[in-house]
Design a protein around this nucleic acid. Structure first.
Lengths: 222, 222
DNA sequence: ATGGTAACATACATGTATGTATGTAAGTAA
DNA sequence: TTACTTACATACATACATGTATGTTACCAT
């Protein structure tokens, strides 16, 4: 009852089991994210994933049920990071257009890390199939599109976005263009940010008066 | 010497060997194109390709050396169609911006067929690798980007395109955005065309005064 | 009709990645 | 120290796709 610590070590001496497990899991997740981003799901070899993380497949199958479970964990992990680093900051913008532009720039910066193509790559790979991984990526994609639809409708209501095709079509084109542009511009910082914003403005049908005024470049952790 | 026909049949009665071979090859190519577009290279199962075309793997390995040879043939086939239906018509436009916009619209229409994602899918799958299929898709991609760079430079010289990031960065973003938008808008005709044009305008940094004036919708064969 | 070749289909051999079962070392509580 | 569990590594069994070798049918010249 009155036990202050379950370990004999003073405080954070070295590796307890939980820490050890967490470290291994993180390393495996990061390696798997890089692998999924580069090779996709089918071409991803679990032995390579484990080796790049400094382990063998044994560690992988201890932490994750199977390949599918690993991929789903990676998707969740990447999506959490995206929400924290891109989605949340954008939500604080005052008007719809500003939010969409910050979203575009933030996504470009986020995708400078090689882990970022994960969702796009998996969504393409499983498009049309009925696979759990595909369903999850579709769900994330749909969340983004729905958010975008709401912003477009709001912007059209207040006059900052002109009328045009159905909001959903615009949102689909906007998101697709954003991902495509950012992937094509991998390794071409800092122009990725501006072009991401420009492309979004184009999809919305608004003039490029706001994209070219460079705001403070978004920072990303690490 | 004076033989008028090598066959006993009057003219084009039925299947000569060459015709038979050509028909089989076409059917296999089309099936493989659909398969590559949907599943990519690694996940493509040759037995499914053959079955969808009405054959077995025997026919496939008779017409093509191996899987790689088949994929390269598909890429060449798709690229030829693209050049005829999209690239050539766009080249007849009077000014750079018009050519880029026709390119965008034409690409959108071209991609309404499910075979069109082939190049994009393979380019993503083999990005960073050193595989013959990846090299070929990269080559085609680079051809398009180079063409785009020239048009951007020409447009900037005559004032129709404002200055901005390096032409190559703009071209990369433009092409990536175009492909991404068109893929995301699959099955959303006719809005795919307008949004493709809008996105290109956005990448170029020009106002959307030309994209929204709908020209005659481009036709595609079959 | 018939010998021969092209266009396939069928059967087999190989490699490779996954998943599981078992072995072993690191950490934990008595 | 010792019993015990966690966290891995190693070894094996299975499945599956490719590529090849062989068999079979359609087409063609004589």
């Amino acid at each position: 009852m009155s036990v202050t610590g379950t370990t004999t070590r003073s405080a954070s001496e070295r590796s307890t089991q939980a820490e050890r497990r967490a470290r291994s899991r993180s390393a495996l997740l990061e390696s798997a994210a890089r692998g999924l981003s580069r090779y996709g799901y089918g071409n991803l070899v679990l032995e390579d994933v484990a080796r790049e993380a400094g382990y063998t497949r044994g560690a992988l199958y201890y932490q994750f049920k199977d390949k599918e479970d690993l991929a789903l964990a990676v998707i969740e992990w990447v999506n959490e990071n995206w929400t924290r680093e891109v989605g949340a900051p954008a939500a604080q913008q005052p008007d719809p257009v500003a939010e969409l532009l910050v979203l575009a720039r933030g996504h470009a910066v986020f995708c400078r890390r090689d882990i970022a193509r994960v969702v796009m790559a998996l969504r393409l790979e499983f498009a049309g199939q009925d696979h759990p991984v595909g369903r999850e990526t579709d769900r994330i994609w749909e969340t983004g599109v729905k958010r975008c639809v709401k912003l477009i409708n709001a912007g059209r209501k207040d006059g900052s976005i002109p009328p045009g095709p159905p909001a959903r079509a615009v949102a689909l084109g906007l998101f697709g263009a954003l991902e495509g542009a950012v992937i094509a511009l991998a390794g071409h910082a800092p122009h990725d940010e501006l072009l991401a914003a420009r492309v979004v403005e184009g999809a919305l049908g608004i003039d490029n008066d706001r994209a070219d005024v460079a705001p403070a470049t978004l920072e990303h952790r690490r």
